[in-house]
Design a binder for these strands. Structure first.
Lengths: 227, 227
DNA sequence: CTAAACATTTTGTAAATAAAAAAAATATAG
DNA sequence: CTATATTTTTTTTATTTACAAAATGTTTAG
């Protein structure tokens, strides 16, 4: 579960955003803060992965809060939300190292994209295998342009993906070979492997190699859960 | 003309990168700094738009330099370059608000992509029309995926390579024979040798020969950490 | 005393093997 | 009927095992 703090002074908007975030699988809103000072307090006392942070606020605005956080070494990730009117100094905002930047008012679909991307980042950075250029690009350059449809990669079907994902989640402690899973789920090894490969590429599954006595070693897969 | 400063301590690499950058239409390399302190001085006295900044450096490393720049309100943009070996704390590096992140050694094509993207950013942010979500996405989410495809040599597997590399790195002071490593890592001598040979060919491992009392002398391998 | 033959240890290569990856064929949804 | 998801078949590849070749020290014949 990715723990989210929403920082937004308008209670209506905050509530709406909370709904939005909790609508995405794997996310949980821990609390809402209506200004920067309260947010800082909450960051001190709660385990928070991600802050959805509005720039305009009384008391302590979003940009100052973010700078303050970094100064105090709160390394929590941030999605910055800016009203279109304040977007003139966007250049400096982009240098704050946020995970994503949303311009108000944003569509639910755009926020969902941001959260989906963040989930990939979250997983990739936590399964501590050495990181490479491809991973970095996946993390920073998530293509988000066609917001319209949740287009899954070709060759994959959402229903099958869900089935396999559920199976892996149900046995989150075990390492399985594609063969074993295929047998247990009554699907072909090839299909299983294609889905596992996809899940591995987005960091939701981790891959390990088992070297047998002779012959090419087998790939073992396990769900990448981070309690 | 976009004015670039290259910050890189290895003169060969710096020169190469200069060539690369100047090969891209609309870019001009103003100077090269071989450490962070020199870079700061150059930033004070020159008009610079973009810094291609290596993380590893003597005197003042890239990350410290970037933090120092922000503290002093040098709002110059930065493309961060990290060696694969140092990429373990990548999470915090990603929070520094760089324009792009390259992992060494990078292909020319990838750098070109980064510079092409930056040109779009540069222009969008300077024609001060009110900025919208689409622009932000264009700036931050440039799709760059088709470039990165670091294919390993045939017969080698990335996961195995990583395992062996890690072992060698963990025992960076010791000279080991392929046989010994094979035993310790529970892999065959032949496999170990193939990977060590590869690592030797790219200079990551150094080879020495030990003459025993009788019989063919043994090859001893050690991680080359001075590089 | 020298050098060829031998013994010993290790490297390097080829064959065997089992799994992954790719391609082709089939089934199914829309 | 067409596009795409899944299975079956084929090819490729990453490993081990087995063995031949190489590099050295030792022995012994001349």
């Amino acid at each position: 579960m990715i723990k989210v703090l929403i920082v937004e002074d308008d209670p209506m908007v905050a509530h709406l955003n909370k709904k939005y975030v909790e609508n995405v699988e794997g996310y949980q809103v821990v609390d809402i803060a209506n200004n920067g000072e309260k947010a800082l307090k909450l960051l001190r006392t709660n385990k928070i992965d991600l802050v959805v942070l509005d720039v305009y606020m009384p008391k302590l605005d979003g940009i100052s809060l973010l700078k303050e956080m970094r100064k105090r070494f709160f390394m929590t990730d941030v999605i910055l939300v800016t009203a279109a009117k304040e977007a003139d100094n966007i250049d400096s905002v982009l240098k704050l190292g946020a995970v994503d930047y949303l311009i108000k008012p944003f569509e639910y679909e755009r926020l969902k994209k941001a959260l989906d991307s963040y989930k990939i980042r979250y997983n990739l950075l936590r399964n501590n295998t050495p990181i490479n250029q491809e991973d970095i690009d996946k993390i920073t350059k998530q293509n988000v342009m066609e917001v319209s449809k949740d287009k899954l990669e070709k060759g994959l079907h959402n229903k099958t993906l869900e089935r396999i994902r559920n199976f892996m989640r149900a046995n989150r402690e075990c390492f399985y070979s594609a063969e074993e899973i295929a047998k247990k789920m009554d699907l072909s090894r090839v299909t299983i492997r294609r889905y596992l490969e996809y899940l591995t590429s987005i960091g939701e599954i981790i891959l390990e190699i088992e070297y047998g006595s002779v012959g090419r070693p087998t790939h073992l897969y396990k769900y990448n859960y981070t309690k």
